[in-house]
Write a protein that binds this DNA or RNA. Structure first.
Lengths: 146, 146
DNA sequence: ATCAAGGTTGACGTTTACGTAAAGGAAAAT
DNA sequence: ATTTTCCTTTACGTAAACGTCAACCTTGAT
């Protein structure tokens, strides 16, 4: 009994549109070993798994991961099932480093958010003042020579 | 009455060491308009303000800001005090966009942290299994011919 | 006096992550 | 049939962010 689950597939431009990247980008990621779409003749057919990888790659980018780093994580994750002790220890090491990175970024972001808030209210204040000044000007305008 | 507060200064290599960047990097940032050290003859003298800017620039980098973006924020912040309405509105716009970015990154990070945790436990499990297997092997080793 | 340590300005090299253009196949619409 | 519309590969171009010399001051230590 073969479970014949039909799996959705995506064209390259499907994914390009969904994630707002160019097809060039997607092909480049493949060239760098981040994606492995099937082929139908020449054209690439992307599975949900490919789609997830693309998603993760892009999120990684937003968090400052290089493509090489993302690839490394993917590869290691894939090999986790059959990994030997050394591999696993290495992976754990990487993971803890990444977690440290993320903690750092978290605190960076929180600080920056506060600062942006402060900058925003300061800016709002300045705006109000500018407008009050302009109002005054309007109610007592300069006399024109006439 | 001149308040003569003596302000600490830093050499380029002081800062390079403190923030673990090369002097080349620091000079480059100056060239890009992010820093404005005083000069003593030829050599650069960095004030605490310069130091803070460097710090902010580096934090910005960790958060995926380009140098140009950081510079833009610095410049605008500096000009906030005397900014006109247009400038201020523009700045507010930028700020709200940055805040949106940061919210996105925050959620990215939180997800990734969860995933890293999961990957870590999975990895730990795999490690335990590998070690148990190796233990078994050791207690009933293969017979050697001989 | 000279020598090592740190500073300076070019100027060219390098990596990453794509952009862009050329040249063409295959299929769907007109 | 031919014109779009997608897709393909190949290949050169590019912007950002430095790295890496080279060639040269200056200044305190020996």
């Amino acid at each position: 009994m073969n479970k014949q689950v039909k799996i959705r597939t995506f064209s390259i431009s499907d994914l390009a549109k969904e994630f707002d990247v160019t097809t060039r980008t997607i092909r480049f990621y493949e060239q760098q070993g981040l994606l492995n779409p099937a082929r139908q003749g020449q054209t690439r057919i992307y599975s949900p798994k490919d789609r997830v990888r693309l998603m993760l790659t892009l999120r990684g980018k937003r968090l400052g991961f290089s493509l090489a780093e993302s690839k490394e994580l993917f590869d290691m994750y894939d090999s986790t099932t059959q990994g030997n002790e050394k591999q696993l220890l290495y992976m754990l090491d990487i993971l803890s480093k990444k977690q440290a990175d993320m903690r750092q970024q978290l605190s960076d972001i929180q600080r920056l958010q506060k600062e942006l808030d402060i900058a925003e209210s300061r800016c709002q204040d300045a705006l109000v003042k500018v407008r009050q000044r302009d109002k005054k000007k309007a109610s007592s305008p300069e006399r024109k020579v006439g």
